[in-house]
Each structure stands twice: as structure tokens, then as C-alpha cells.
Design a binder for these strands. Structure first.
Length: 354
DNA sequence: AATCATGGCAACCGCTCCTCC
DNA sequence: GGGAGGAGCGGTTGCCATGAT
């Protein structure tokens, strides 16, 4: 659109930052806050473009950054969230306190991607690379519906990340009177309400009263800013009904723009499959949802990779035959999603912000 | 010891999104 | 409503460190 890049001015320095530059930037932000990034370099006496300064600050100088090796927990979190979100590094980063999106992205590209590949998992789709099996056993249709689910959740998380950004902006303004280390603003007012659907899944799944309560809670105070989930208490007893209700609501809401593009028939398809899931498995839709997702994504291969012992609870008995094996398998599914939910629940009301 | 290959990470680039006028 | 500018995001590049030959 004819807009000139911010860094094309001659005389602006590029490349690695020197300790002196770091010091200048740090000192300026500590005293004044970053304010307008574009104006910052001149005020701070730096021969850099604002963009470069922002990057340096957010990826390196910020005091609340945790550096060093990623823990196994963090690795799992990244893998799980990547399965849901794809390459939305900033959204993933909102669930990993003290890690920057750039760091997560780099870690994914240099470590996790390769590791998943080695384990026979497509790092993009999180499915086993030999996907042919799916198309022959009738699961492919279900899998595509899962993909719709994932898209929906993904879109929602994106919206939530946007909200986080907005609130960050707002609090940056507010905190501009007391510069720096604004106990940052990135953090939304409470724990991120992402993955509401997964919470719901979880509740349905375990069928525990507590979880049921948490689901009903979604209708009220648990509501995410962007969430349009609406669960009735009767939905607990009729899981798929609850799910259908949620689908209907979402399609008429803020995410409608995205979802509608898929067409009404797609959603009808989901409803039909929702029903078919129930009848074919004797379980509920959500159970089948996770079941399928995991059978398509990593469980088998994670088990294969258990020798690396990096995957703790993700590694289980895998696809072993027999009732007990399938029970373990379901347990693994629960663990997998529980770990996502736990991470969301426990994630930072004090999450780092800059 | 020298050279080459590979891995890891910081930084850049280009694009999109959002806000303001 | 539309354009301009600022900010943020994701992909990519380039440099440096380390390991292999």
C-alpha cells in the first residue's frame, strides 16, 4: 500500500545489539516506559528503528523473561497448543509465562518439529504421517469434523489473544504514568478463558458433578469475553445436545464470519456426526472427539517415542489391544486434554507482560 | 589443526491488523 | 467509509558456536 518500511532510513543501525545499546534502551524504558516505539529510538538516543527496539525489548531485555532450556512441561504445552493453534506463536506464548513468541517459535523449529518428525508425526497436522489408514476405516469424515472443531477453537483463541493484546494496550496507557515493568498488561483480568470447549469436553468426559458444575458455570461468570458458549444444566446429561447448542450459538456470534464461510452444511454435518458418534461408540461425542483427535495425532507415535521419556503422561499404553489397553488409551486421552486444561487454568493471571 | 556441516538463536522483513483522523 | 500510520505477528535469514571429519 505504498507505505515505507520503518527501517529504510539511512544511518539506522541493523544487526546485533551492543551492550551499550541495550543499556540505553533499558534505561530509557525503565524511566519513561516505551510509549510510542516509533518515537523511542530518537528519544533514547539510539540509531535503530522503533521496530528493532521493540523486538529487542520484548525478546531479550524484558526483565520477566525466562531464559534457558525449556522444561518438559513447557515442551508438552507447546506441542499441545500447537496441535490446536498451529503456528500462532503469540497465542501459544500467552500460555507460557516468561517465554516469548520468538523463543517458542525458534524452539519449535529447531527442536520439537524435528523430534515429532522423527517420531513419525507430521509436525504440521500432528497426525501420524501414514495417514492412509484413516481413509479406509471411515474415520476420515470424522477427522475432518475434528478439523472444523479445531478451526473453531483456533479462531476463538485468536480472538482471545487479540483481546489480551487490547487489554495490554489499555494497561500500558494506564501504567504510562509509572513507567517500566509495568506489571504488565498483557495479562487478562483473570486466567485466560481459552479452551472453554475443552473445559466442557473435560466435564462431559469425566461426568463428575464437579465438572458438571464447571460447565454450567460457563453460562455465567466463567464466560470468556469472546465466548458464546451456552450450556444448560441439562446438557450435562445429554452431552451431544450441549455440543449442538454450542455450535449453534457460535455460528451466530463473533466468530460467525469465519465459521459461516464453511457453510451451513458443514455444521449440519457435525450435528449428524455428533449423533453418529453417540450411536456408534456408545460413548458421547466429546469422548469420540478426543479419541479421534488423539488417534490421529500423536498417541501411537508418542508411545513409540517413549524411549525418550520426554513425554511423561502423554506416553501410555498407546494402541495396545484389549479392554485394559483401550481403557489406558482413554486415560491417556483424558490426561492429554487435562494437561491442556490445567495449563490454561493455571496460566498466568500474573502472566508476563511487556 | 583446519575445514566443513549442522544447530541454535537473535534479528530482520514483509505482511496484516488495529486505531485514529 | 476510507486512508494513513503504528504495532504486532509469523516466516525467514544470517551469524556464531559446536561437532564431525
Amino acid at each position: 500500500m505504498g507505505r515505507s518500511p520503518c527501517c529504510d532510513k539511512v544511518g539506522l543501525k541493523k544487526g546485533p545489539w551492543t551492550p551499550e545499546e541495550d543499556q540505553k534502551l533499558l534505561a530509557y524504558i525503565e524511566e519513561h516506559g516505551h510509549g510510542s516505539w516509533r518515537a523511542l529510538p530518537a528519544k533514547a538516543g539510539l540509531q535503530r528503528c522503533g521496530k528493532s527496539c521493540r523486538l529487542r525489548w520484548t525478546n531479550y531485555l524484558r526483565p520477566d523473561i525466562k531464559r534457558g532450556k525449556f522444561s518438559i512441561q513447557e515442551e508438552q504445552t507447546i506441542i499441545q497448543l500447537h496441535a490446536l493453534l498451529g503456528n500462532r506463536w503469540s497465542a501459544i506464548a500467552t500460555h507460557l509465562p516468561q517465554r516469548t513468541d520468538n523463543e517458542i517459535k525458534n524452539y519449535w523449529n529447531t527442536h520439537l518439529q524435528k523430534r515429532l518428525s522423527r517420531m513419525g508425526i507430521d509436525p504440521v497436522t500432528h497426525k501420524p504421517k501414514s495417514d492412509a489408514i484413516l481413509s479406509t476405516d471411515g474415520h476420515s469424515k470424522n477427522a475432518s469434523n475434528l478439523s472444523h472443531m479445531a478451526q473453531w477453537e483456533s479462531a476463538r483463541l485468536e480472538a482471545e489473544a487479540r483481546l489480551v493484546r487490547q487489554s495490554k494496550l489499555r494497561s500500558t496507557e494506564i501504567s504510562s504514568s509509572s513507567p517500566l515493568l509495568h506489571k504488565p498488561a498483557l495479562a487478562p483480568p483473570g486466567p485466560p478463558r481459552c479452551l472453554d470447549i475443552l473445559k466442557a469436553c473435560n466435564g462431559v468426559w469425566t461426568n463428575k458433578p464437579n465438572n458438571a458444575a464447571s460447565i454450567t458455570g460457563l453460562t455465567g461468570d466463567l464466560e470468556s469475553p469472546t465466548s458464546t458458549l451456552s450450556y444448560s444444566s441439562t446438557g450435562i446429561g445429554d452431552n451431544s445436545a450441549a455440543f449442538i447448542e454450542f455450535v449453534g450459538n457460535s455460528s451466530g456470534s463473533c466468530e460467525a464470519g469465519i465459521l459461516k464461510e464453511e457453510g451451513e452444511e458443514d455444521w449440519k454435518g457435525i450435528d449428524e456426526n455428533t449423533m453418529s458418534f453417540r450411536s456408534s461408540s456408545g460413548g458421547n461425542f466429546l469422548e469420540r472427539f478426543t479419541d479421534l483427535l488423539l488417534s490421529n495425532s500423536g498417541n501411537r507415535s508418542f508411545s513409540e517415542g517413549c524411549g525418550e521419556s520426554d513425554y511423561g503422561d502423554i506416553c501410555g499404553s498407546g494402541t495396545g489391544a484389549g479392554a485394559s489397553a483401550s481403557h489406558d488409551y482413554l486415560e491417556d486421552n483424558k490426561n492429554y486434554w487435562n494437561s491442556i486444561l490445567n495449563l490454561v487454568d493455571s496460566s498466568p493471571s500474573d502472566s508476563p507482560v511487556f
